[in-house]
Amino acid sequence: MEQLKIPIGKSLEYVIELITEHFSFATKAFSEVTETGISFLVDSMMFFPPWALILFFSAIAWFLSKRKGLALFTLIGLGLIWNMGLWAPTISTIALVLISTLIAMLIGLPLGILSALNTTSFKIIMPILDVMQTMPAFVYLIPAIPFFGLGPVGAIFSTVIFSMPPAIRLTCLGIKQVPVELVEAADSFGSTRSQKLFKLQLPMATPTIMAGINQTIMLALSMVVIAAMIGAKGLGGEVWKAIQRLEPDKGFEAGIAIVIVAIILDRIMQRVGAQQKAA
């Protein structure tokens, strides 16, 4: 049986080796850019005293969601995190999530648009997304190490892959959901493809796209925690440390901090999406 085994794993390993050897310039460039981005974001957030930043985040939450309750929750939640002594890892987690989400959107939105407008692309992209979403998240950590080594860049790489599918899917869905009669109307006035896209389809798809971004953020948050295994710092790192040292108190505290961050991000994005829909 050994001889008859189809070398799926081996060939994939070979591909990874090939990329590591011959495309190191690309992986290195990606490393440089992301590392600069992360350290800039973390440094600038750590520059301010925590209380100032907590007030700032609460203000943003209020501004984006127009909800006093959410602003209050942000204030208390982040205050609690500070009090638990988890401020620095929280900042680094938020930075990782923001950068991963940004990259996932930069790649995901155009792919979503493409798959909505072009049947061939749709047929190619959708099965790939199915694979990406069913593959266990840990598997993405493996290529990250040879490509980028241990550290935050590898974490961002696997997080981007893991969290991108909903952004693509929901962008595609949002555009496809635009009623046929409206598309016909835009066509009947002689719109070009891009006029149709920017004047009709994207504005109509915005609430759905926002829902996709929300999911991407949530997935990114969960993956950033898992990615602590390959050396991403942050709240995930705290949990990881607690497991290794058998410190349930620290582990739960870090877990609670993650939940707080997740709730704040989710509610803000949901409110923004709902406002888009209402407009």
């Binding site: 009669e181 016909e184 109307a185 835009a186 066509d187 006035f189 004047k199 009709l200």
Partner: peptide
């Protein structure tokens, strides 16, 4: 496209107004 822009005006059964 140019012909549609300059010669035809179309009105639809369910109005097809752009909701946003």
């Amino acid at each position: 496209r140019v012909t549609r822009q300059t010669r035809f005006g179309m009105v639809f059964q369910h109005f097809a107004l752009f909701p946003r």
